[in-house]
Amino acid sequence: MVTVTIRAIEVNDWEGLAALQQFPKVRRGTLQMPYQSPAVIRRRLENQPENIYQLAAIEPESEQLVGTISLHQQTRGRQHVGCIGMAVRDDFHGQGIGSELLKEVVEIADGWLNLKRLELTVYVDNAPAIHLYQKFGFLIEGTLKKYAFREGRFVDAFTMARII
């Protein structure tokens, strides 16, 4: 287990976020395109909507960003719903960082936003992530066939939700 500091992501985290997205397992497990321009990532952080809460996991010794999670509160008739996306640097997998990030975002959803449904999409071949989400009460609701085109082929994904 690695101790990390969890805090709100800041605009000046753009370089760490750009570096995070270049790790092979991060690219493979998310829908982020490889080799995104760091300038695009910076602009995204500079123009973050108010209904998106994004946290960073910072390794204190190196002060490097090693993981991130976002909670996007929906609008209109879905204000009670939050959508989650997360990533942890390849060399920090299996060290409890995903659990720490997910714990904090669930606390925001439950204790501050009163969200009743948290949802996410995860590739069916990402067993560690599926296990983590199930540990936090997420259930598989369905399979999305040919959900995304990744590494030259179509892949399926599960839609998962935690309802309280």
Rank of each mutant, 00 (worst) to 15 (best):
G142R: 14
H80E: 08
L101T: 02
G111V: 05
Q48H: 09
F92W: 11
G142P: 13
R117T: 14
T30S: 08
L20A: 05
L144Y: 11
M86T: 03
E104K: 12
E15Q: 15
E104G: 02
L31W: 12
K103F: 02
G29F: 05
Q74L: 15
S70W: 03
F138M: 02
F92V: 06
E10A: 15
H72E: 15
R76S: 11
Q36A: 03
V88R: 00
E107G: 08
L118M: 14
M86Q: 06
A109G: 05
S99G: 15
E104H: 11
E107A: 12
D110P: 07
T30F: 02
D91V: 03
N126V: 10
V66Q: 01
E10M: 15
V124R: 05
A129F: 02
P49Y: 11
N12M: 09
S62P: 08
K135C: 02
R44V: 07
D90H: 11
T143K: 14
V66E: 00
P60L: 09
L115C: 03
A18K: 04
Q32M: 08
T68L: 04
Q21D: 12
Q74Y: 11
I97T: 04
N51G: 04
N12R: 10
R28I: 04
I108R: 08
V26T: 05
R117E: 11
A8E: 15
R27D: 05
T30P: 01
A19E: 10
G111E: 10
N114D: 14
L101N: 03
Q134L: 07
R76N: 10
L144W: 10
P38F: 06
Y53L: 04
I108T: 10
R7I: 09
I9G: 00
E46P: 00
G111D: 10
E61H: 12
I58A: 05
V122D: 01
Q74I: 06
Q74K: 13
V66K: 00
L132I: 03
A109F: 01
L65A: 03
G67W: 04
F138A: 01
E100D: 07
D125P: 07
Q22I: 00
D110H: 14
Q134I: 06
L55T: 01
T75G: 11
I58N: 06
N114P: 04
G111A: 09
E46F: 07
P24G: 04
G98S: 09
A129V: 03
R43L: 11
E59P: 02
E107H: 13
I9E: 01
G96Q: 06
L20G: 02
K25C: 04
L102F: 05
W112N: 12
Q48M: 13
I9W: 00
P34K: 06
V106Y: 00
R117D: 09
Y133Q: 00
F136Q: 00
V40P: 03
I97Y: 03
F138I: 01
K135M: 07
L55N: 01
R43T: 13
R43M: 09
H93N: 02
V11S: 07
K135S: 08
W112E: 15
Q48L: 15
Q74W: 11
G142C: 12
R76L: 14
L71Y: 08
T121D: 13
Q74E: 15
T75F: 10
L139Y: 12
T75A: 12
K103A: 13
R28S: 13
Y133P: 03
T121S: 14
G85R: 06
G85T: 10
K25H: 12
H131E: 14
E104F: 01
A87R: 01
E107T: 07
E100Y: 00
Y53Q: 01
L65D: 01
F136L: 02
V11G: 06
